[in-house]
Amino acid sequence: MTVLVVIEHDRGALGPASLEALAAARTIDPVVHALTLGSAADGFATDLAAHGATVVHQVHHDLLADFGPEAWGEAVAQAVRALQPDSVLACGTDRGNEVMAQAAARLDLPFVANVVSVSAADVWDITRVRWGGSLLEACTLSAATKLLTVSHHAFEAGESPAAGATSSLSVELDPSLARTVVVQRVERAAGVTLATAPVVVGGGRAVGSAEAFAPLEELAALLGGVVGCSRAVTNNGWRNHTDQVGQTGTRIAPDLYMACGISGAIQHWVGAMASKKILAINTDPEANMVTKADYAVIGDLHKVVPAITAEIRRRRGV
């Protein structure tokens, strides 16, 4: 038994990044074991087998009924002590990184976050993400058990049928770990979010004020999309941080991103680069956003955006 993959889920909904972690694990060792936490995850066994899990270790405990970083981290640490894998992989999501950091602290082991490639020898040569994806780091990892998380989109999930036998693993979780378990939860209202919108109309510093976003709102609504913005905008208090695209904001992946008056700083770009097509509207033809975009209009966004809206209304008669 060598590589163990911690499966992420939210109350029984399988995190898709877990299947990427399984794919990454198969590049390290053909024998892949999976670890699921909480009985809500029992139903994954078949799916995990289809994606290469030889054995699925299921952990059941009241403290794992909902997410809790300390309870989950302690459960992973105990699984590592019991199963003695050579390495442990989880998803490079907020939860995955948090749980692995918890497990690493408890096991007093190093932990490498957001890995994109691994060369496994005695000491591992690893490439990982820095600056939210703007830069990579080559590093070495020496440890009795290697703990890492897999950067989202670095490995492609794919089927690779394996036995998928299930085994029940018991852990002893101290009741005090309940101190960091979710006590209340408010589900998100259904609807288009910045992360899932098919069209994002983004505004930068050049928009100039909160009120001046109205024409961008109007255009976004016509296209069935939402408005996004740069950090210069949120720092000025013109829009809420929930609208910020970038390294410390939201990563978007729309069919079209219209970036209006945004210079395209690297920290903004990493949040926008997964867009299928990018159209930049900027007065500066040399702006990073313009040179990296698929399409550009050179001009004042305050004139160009209303003109686009007017042209759509003219053609559609709305």
Binding site: P110, F111, L135, V290, T291, A296, V297
Partner: peptide, 29 residues
């Protein structure tokens, strides 16, 4: 610790041939 940086590596730059749609509001169509 057990994790030691060796070097920094530039991530592959996305190069794109930007198609210019025009200047100012006249580019709207």
């Amino acid at each position: 610790g057990g994790q030691q940086m060796v070097s920094l590596v530039q991530s592959a730059e996305q190069v794109s041939q930007t198609i210019m749609l025009g200047n100012g509001p006249e580019a709207a169509p």
